[in-house]
């Protein structure tokens, strides 16, 4: 019986997805590095994407819900929340993408190193033998805040960026989510793109990534989901 109860609680937690909560006593809503470290690309998400058809007041948690729904639809199950002045930052898990910007299919999508060839085809083999097979990775950070910001010159390493996922909260605190989302609020997506020259080598931040912010969001399928 007790096992069933645990299972039901777990199921409830998973099913509710972006449920709200409060930060545990003695702990803080961890701050995201501010201003954010320099990103490879950025994109402002038009506020029209978040417009409410009903006359109800739009809250920050509704924006979070919309972003969460888009992320879930595109397979981004892990995310973490940080505090930023006047709002929050939502960090996605590091994912690997193809040269065309599309997310790789799992399990390659979530691994942190490029994998050696497994399926043999002559074309793929010749390509792998004679040309470099770099790995491309990205982390998307959605920042929802009315505060305008720039970026610092600090170059974040891939390991540091990956650590964001562990150090943030698993959900948006109630007090932040309850704020009204006004027209002065802006949702910005910062894309941290990393390039690994070859398997087993260190991935480095691509200062000016090969794609624009909007291209990253489009290729990741997020823009279409946010438009819905």
């Amino acid at each position: 019986m007790a096992r069933h109860s645990y299972f039901l609680i777990l199921l409830l937690v998973v099913a509710t997805g972006c449920t709200r909560g409060e930060v545990e006593k003695g702990k803080k809503f961890v701050k995201f590095p501010w201003p954010p470290p320099k990103a490879s690309a950025q994109s402002l998400i038009p506020n029209s994407y978040f417009e409410n058809e009903s006359d109800q007041v739009l809250l920050v948690k509704d924006i979070d819900q919309k972003i969460c729904d888009a992320l879930t639809a595109q397979g981004y199950s892990a995310r973490s929340y940080f505090a930023v002045p006047g709002g929050f930052a939502l960090v996605t898990r590091l994912e690997q993408f193809d040269e065309d910007g599309k997310s790789k299919a799992p399990p390659d999508r979530w691994v942190t190193d490029t994998r050696p060839m497994r399926d043999f085809s002559l074309g793929a083999y010749i390509r792998a033998l004679f040309t470099a097979s770099p790995g491309y990775y990205r982390i998307i950070v959605f920042i929802v805040t009315p505060v305008l910001f720039d970026q610092t010159d600090q170059e974040v390493s891939r390991d540091e960026a990956m650590a964001w996922l562990r150090s943030g909260l698993n959900n948006l605190p109630d007090n932040v989510g309850a704020q009204e989302y006004t027209q002065s609020q802006v949702c910005t997506a910062l894309i941290y793109e990393f390039k690994q020259p070859e398997k087993g080598t260190e991935a480095k931040l691509s200062e000016s990534g090969q794609f624009s912010g909007i291209e990253h969001l489009t290729n990741a399928g997020l823009l279409a989901e946010l438009k819905k």
């Binding site: 994998r115 050696p116 060839m117 497994r118 083999y125 792998a128 033998l129 097979s133 070859e198 398997k199 087993g200 080598t201």
Partner: peptide, 13 residues
């Protein structure tokens, strides 16, 4: 040299 693409480590390694 020819089976390097199947190796888990990088070429030089």
């Amino acid at each position: 040299i020819l089976l390097e693409p199947f190796a888990p480590m990088n070429a030089i390694e």
